[in-house]
Every structure is written in structure tokens, then in C-alpha cells.
């Protein structure tokens, strides 16, 4: 199992620990996210992938360890510096999180208007291009409440890349998309990455799509990185846990169930006790 061998990492996570209440979500996790590459973060539902993105974005504070972006400690800088740093990041939220009081057009235009002084017609061109890229130029005047789930997520994606950020984090970009849209999004993410040299972090359960674009994969389970490397390396990984996840088998060392008491016991014996 090879750790990523790119010397240039843009995000450097060291000894990261984080817990929610009594549940420890990360235990001394180390990760290096290479610059200009597409890195995928995979793992069973509930392992803390979304949590990891929020830690990187500085929205949650770790219990221990550091996250450095380009040498800046995300949790050590001032609030003002953190907001400046975030201008260089784009994040697609798992829920989309569009601003419900703005139309599709205004949602995508929002980051551009806040952070640049571009004239209106230029903003308009950028917004329409981004909407075109996700296939929703025709939906620009709709309100978020008038969109389907998949459409809303694509608008959110257009908003996340509106400012051409250095680091784009996609939380489940393919969920809820039809096969055509999936294909388009895969191409779009790769294109953004290649054309502009941005770093992308993708959280996804879609093994095929992720395998086809990721340069590098981290597999998380139970608070630890259980495997990392290129897609080929992960596919040929012979560890039981990794094989189970990559092939989608229900039984194996990776727990599918949230907590582990025996289901029969729970069903039949609790009442009598």
C-alpha cells in the first residue's frame, strides 16, 4: 500500500482527532491531499466524510491535530484570515444548500458579486457559462423551491465553482443524478481539474464514477484511513476490508450496521428482559 508519493501536497492533515459527543469519529488521521489532482474520499456511510470536509473548511474544530492548507493552519488563523482562505475554496454541500430567497441565477452570481468587482455583463457571462456547464442555463430564472433534487445539486455545483476556486470539495456530486447527468458531471469535474489545475476532493459512494476520475483514493473506515493509493492499487488491494468495500459485499470486516448488538437478540429478547 503506497501513500501518495506526490511531494507537493496542498492540504496536509496530521494526527487529526475529532469526536461527536462520546463517539470518536477520527483517531489520529494523517492525510496529504496532492495539489492539482483529484482525490476521492470513500468509506461507509456515517464514517465522517462530510465531517472531514467541514473540518478542512474550518467549520468544525478538531479535538487534536492540525489541518494545513498551503502551510496555513486552518484552525490557528484569525476569523478574518479564515474567511479570506475560504474564498479560495468551493464546496458542494451534500444537501445543496442553495439560498432559498434567490433565483438560480442569483445563487450562482452571489460568490462572484461578493468577491469581485466585475461589471454586471461579465458576471452574467460567467454565470451563464457555469450554468451551461451543468446543463441548467434554461433554469436560470427558477427559484430553488422549483427545482428537482438533482437539479438543485447541479446548481449548487455551479455555484461552488463560480469563482474558479483553487480547491473544490464535492460532497456526493453524483447522488440523485441520472446516468446522463452523471456522465456529464464526471467529465465536468475532470475538465475543471485539468484546465485550471485545481485540486478537487470528491466524497462519493459511486465506485465506478469515482474510479474513473480519481488520481488518488483514501478509504476511511471506523475513524482511520484503512487504505490509500491510486484506483488500480485499491482494486488490487487484498485486504479483506478493502475488498469488501470495493466490491460491495454486505458481510465482512467493515460493519454495515451503525452499532453492533445482535439483531436477533434485539428483536426477540429485549421485551422479555
Amino acid at each position: 500500500m503506497s501513500v501518495n508519493n506526490s511531494p507537493e501536497s496542498i492540504i496536509d492533515i496530521s494526527a487529526l482527532s475529532f469526536s461527536r459527543g462520546t463517539r470518536q469519529i477520527f483517531r489520529h488521521v494523517d492525510m496529504k491531499i496532492p495539489r492539482g489532482k483529484i482525490t476521492a474520499i470513500m468509506g461507509p456511510s456515517g464514517t465522517g466524510k462530510t465531517t472531514l470536509l467541514k473540518l478542512i473548511g474550518g467549520q468544525l474544530r478538531p479535538d487534536g491535530g492540525h489541518i494545513e492548507i498551503d502551510g496555513l493552519d486552518v484552525h490557528g488563523i484569525s476569523r478574518q484570515q479564515l474567511f479570506t482562505l475560504r474564498e479560495r475554496m468551493g464546496m458542494l454541500f451534500q444537501s445543496g444548500a442553495l439560498f432559498t430567497d434567490m433565483s438560480v441565477y442569483e445563487n450562482v452570481a452571489f460568490p462572484i458579486k461578493v468577491h469581485t468587482k466585475l461589471p454586471d455583463d461579465m458576471v452574467r457571462d460567467i454565470v451563464l457559462l457555469k450554468l451551461q456547464a451543468v446543463g441548467l442555463r434554461g433554469a436560470r430564472d427558477l427559484m430553488p423551491s422549483e427545482l428537482s433534487g438533482g437539479m438543485a445539486r447541479r446548481v449548487a455545483l455551479a455555484r461552488a465553482i463560480a469563482l474558479d476556486p483553487d480547491i473544490v470539495m464535492y460532497d456526493e456530486p453524483f447522488t440523485g443524478q441520472d446516468p446522463i447527468a452523471k456522465g456529464v458531471l464526471v467529465k465536468l469535474i475532470r475538465q475543471i481539474n485539468e484546465a485550471l489545475g485545481h485540486t478537487s476532493i470528491i466524497v462519493s459512494h459511486d465506485i465506478q464514477e469515482t474510479m474513473s476520475i480519481a488520481d488518488n483514493i483514501f478509504l476511511l473506515s471506523d475513524g482511520e484511513v484503512i487504505a490509500s493509493g491510486s484506483p488500480q492499487e485499491l482494486l488490487s488491494n487484498q485486504t479483506e476490508q478493502v475488498k469488501q468495500f470495493m466490491q460491495g459485499l454486505p458481510d465482512g470486516p467493515v460493519p454495515f450496521h451503525f452499532s453492533d448488538d445482535d439483531v436477533l437478540e434485539d428483536l426477540y429478547f429485549t421485551e422479555e428482559r
Partner: peptide, 14 residues
């Protein structure tokens, strides 16, 4: 609840 505040934060707006 709908993460609009979080997404403002991530856009770099307080």
C-alpha cells in the same frame, strides 16, 4: 438547518 449559513461561510462570507 438547510446549511445556508454554512454555505455562506464556505463562500467566504461571514
Amino acid at each position: 438547518a438547510t446549511e445556508q449559513l454554512s454555505s455562506l461561510e464556505m463562500i467566504g462570507v461571514d
